[in-house]
Amino acid sequence: MTGDRASQTNSTQPRVGLFVTCLVDLFRPGIGFACVKLLEDAGCAVEVPAAQVCCGQPAFNSGDTDATRRIARQTIEAFAGYDYVVGPSGSCMATISKDYPEILKDDSEWSERARALAGRSYELMAFLTDVLEVSPPETSFEGRATYHDSCSGLRSLGIKQQPRTLLSGVKGLTLTEMQDAEVCCGFGGTFCVKYPEISVKMVSDKIGNIDASGADTLLGGDLGCLLNIAGRLKRLGKDVRVLHTAEVLAGMADRPGIGDGDRD
């Protein structure tokens, strides 16, 4: 099975199944490798079950609950047997830990398994901070950054301080809070293509706040939001680097930022 590295696991290491998320898989695999590094540095044995695709959120948020249930069961099956399931997105991990138990609660075969999976599923920053209680990693990043709180992570999972705590150890990085850091960037999954004008207005407001903070780097914990914000920043010709927090913490921020190319 692809990525089954169970043979390397020693018995005291927590076995972590990495939920890559589809956007990271497709657009920014570097975030996935940053997760692997952070988790391995923290003493975890990391595996990547091959049978994972997406958490099902696009179907769930579009009203197709039946398809979501099928995808949920596939995900539950794929991640059976791990001590923890960890992913670099508050949004996907909230779907797994909050929505799966809810949509499968009347399914006698799956409700217990959904609850069990939910109980050991974590967003990356929360896992490192709240479960493993790691110290901020010693790494460096030159920049003046501001942090966008993605909505699902913030409101469904209570992720607020964790990334900031971890970033506080990064040498050379100053973190300046922007106005309305907790306000939605306008991504909203399919919302951004269904209502592009409103979405662009919202992301433009976000960029106004990024500008006003004086930051040269935007950090966040959800690639959907970061693609949206980077996409608008680049369209406006703004020279702000956009990175996932994991990339900075793993010391893997030396490559072009999101939406930047070789020539930037």
Binding site: F27, F33, V48, P196
Partner: peptide, 23 residues
């Protein structure tokens, strides 16, 4: 992808997918 690109650029994928690289 006009819904997206009317007001935003679409960031390009970084390279191969994560799963391809991991495999």
């Amino acid at each position: 992808a006009s819904g997206w690109t009317a007001g935003r650029d679409m960031p390009a994928p970084q390279g191969e997918t994560f799963h391809a690289q991991w495999a």
